[in-house]
Design a protein around this nucleic acid. Structure first.
Lengths: 329, 329
DNA sequence: AAAATTAATGCAAACGATTGCACAGGAGGG
DNA sequence: CCCTCCTGTGCAATCGTTTGCATTAATTTT
């Protein structure tokens, strides 16, 4: 029983088209009629039915945002950027989660496709991209954030992972550290790979041999940080410097260290990525590369918006942000 | 150019209605036709256009979730529960943020109304409820989570705040502590109020006089926890025990303490609410009441779903969860 | 004053799906 | 052999908007 254009038309004695035109700001309607209609609309509490409008206009002013995990502060900072930016142009955002698996991701994409979103921003959960390509291909613009996929070239917004992790590792080396352990994220994921490259590059440029037992990959989540740090500390000759690929693994590592290596605060050093609210509580972390999370979202949203508006320039566009630096003292 | 029922109809030589019936599982269609149609639909990559369907059926299978801040782990855990639960019934969730202000909240609600959501789950940013009532009133079910509003009675899912905070404060008192400082959340918000009541009640039952200078209200965010803890510690006769109303204020407080009161780890004690990934890194926090965040979301979603299906029983229903207990050692 | 232009509004189709009703043809009952 | 009853399918209206085109009245031009 929401009030429709028809109701207003009936009440004011003009046609539905006239009401529609008034409410969409068509100047061709007499001031007289405009007033009458507007007043009636207001009084009756009219609200446009965007479902009907979308059907006619073939535009839903809705975009989809798919990420691996909705409770993840990092992803949600990106989502915030997206939401803020797109809200200004009248878009809303449907947030879906892939729960870190490709089937759920595909399911989410299917639903969003059926909801006829105008565009998609995806933080893919793996390197697989075929399902994205199949579902959206050319019909609907897709922007990737934070990660790329194989088999599907499209716009993306990333950070300079390799350079940042090179800098972190190189920094440690310059301070005379030679045995730097690497705690990686999910190896399938762009950012994890690139951060690993940066690590390798730093070793190489400083002529340090790679020690395979100092390299371990987790999944970017807490538990893997905890477990890998534990393993490292239980080695016969444990490393004292650590590169940790993201915040959540850092939390895990710090938790392990605070539980079992409390007294070694001055011996052990962590460098890594990101800076969150609780980061200053870390005892072992010295320096981190901070990704501009909200800005990544904002940029992805801007890019998507351009594509939705039909701009085809320089496709596919890969945009890379530099990180900021945080020193924990 | 997505393929429509019409396209399939044309291709298979049957009418649009028949195609529709086949795809919606109507058994009255001959097996013959069913096969033909299904095969064509699959081959052509048909996906229902839910915009059109929604218009006809007056059901969007979309619900709105409005919360004060999307990057807030607490709210997003609730959102996760909502999303998980509703996904099972084929709903998607549009997540909006009010940025902790009523105008934005109202704006989000208006948009969701125009998008014709089937229902709303709201974590209101204040005690104001008129705008919700006006926009949705009876037309669309609304469930509140975590907080209530004035002027609008509707279903809600909360926790037993008062009992939990009573227990925390009472616990400290039973250990002989008498000067317990209170770091509250935003006073306008249900949970902040109720936690304060619990504090007062514990003092009262133990015949401890309230000291107004030990009571301060913040806004549930980090900075307020930091600032208030600082103020307390800079008193001439600083308290040694603290009740902190939520996780984020705890982070702030812990940050202050780690910066400026590092050596007092054994003297100072914090109790409070919530337990997040980084909570085990807290040095001063002893015991917390843990809200079942995901379960709150799940329950809110279930309740909303019932209302959408037309169940009017026991309206308005206020459901309260008990907290769990976490001891940090 | 007739013709041409402009201004204000209405008609009706369209978007893509769902669904009540009608209808054709075949089966079964009397 | 006619009447009734299924079975399978199609017709057409409908959901609430938007919008090209037609229409009418008023105004301007010549």
């Amino acid at each position: 029983m929401p009030v429709t254009l028809k109701d207003i038309a009936k009440k004011t004695g003009v046609s539905v088209s006239t009401v529609s035109r008034v409410l969409s700001g068509d100047k061709a309607i007499s001031v007289q009629t405009q007033q009458t209609v507007r007043k009636a609309a207001k009084k009756m509490g009219y609200r446009v039915n965007t479902v009907a409008r979308s059907l006619k206009m073939n535009r839903t002013y809705t975009v989809g945002f798919v990420c691996p995990e909705i409770t993840n502060e990092f992803f949600m900072k990106i989502a915030k950027g997206v939401e803020q930016e797109l809200k200004q142009s009248g878009y809303s955002v449907i947030i879906c989660t892939s729960n870190e698996n490709v089937e759920d991701e595909a399911r989410s994409l299917r639903i969003l496709r059926e909801k006829c979103v105008d565009g998609m921003i995806i933080i893919p959960c793996s390197n697989e991209g075929m399902h994205i390509k199949e579902l959206f291909g050319d019909s609907c613009p897709v922007v990737l954030a934070d990660r790329l996929v194989d088999d599907f070239k499209t716009d993306a917004v990333l950070v300079n992972n390799e350079a940042a992790s090179f800098d972190l590792v190189d920094g440690l080396i310059k301070k005379g550290k030679k045995r730097i352990a690497f705690l990686g994220g999910n190896e399938l994921i762009t950012s994890a790979k690139e951060r690993f490259s940066g690590y390798l590059k730093a070793l190489k440029e400083n002529n340090i041999a790679v020690e395979p037992e100092l390299i371990r990959f987790g999944d970017f989540y807490l538990q893997s940080g905890y477990d890998i740090m534990k393993d490292f500390c239980e080695m016969k000759n444990p490393p004292k410097e650590f590169f940790i690929s993201n915040y959540f693994m850092q939390v895990g590592a710090e938790r392990y260290l605070q539980e079992y290596q409390k007294n070694k605060e001055d011996e052990l050093t962590i460098v890594g990525f990101d800076n969150m609210d609780a980061s200053p509580l870390f005892r072992f972390t010295e320096r981190t590369a901070v990704q501009p999370m909200v800005a990544i979202g904002t940029e992805a949203a801007r890019l998507l918006h351009r594509r939705i508006e039909g701009d085809k320039e320089a496709f596919p566009l890969i945009s890379r942000f530099d990180v900021d630096w945080n020193v924990n003292d």
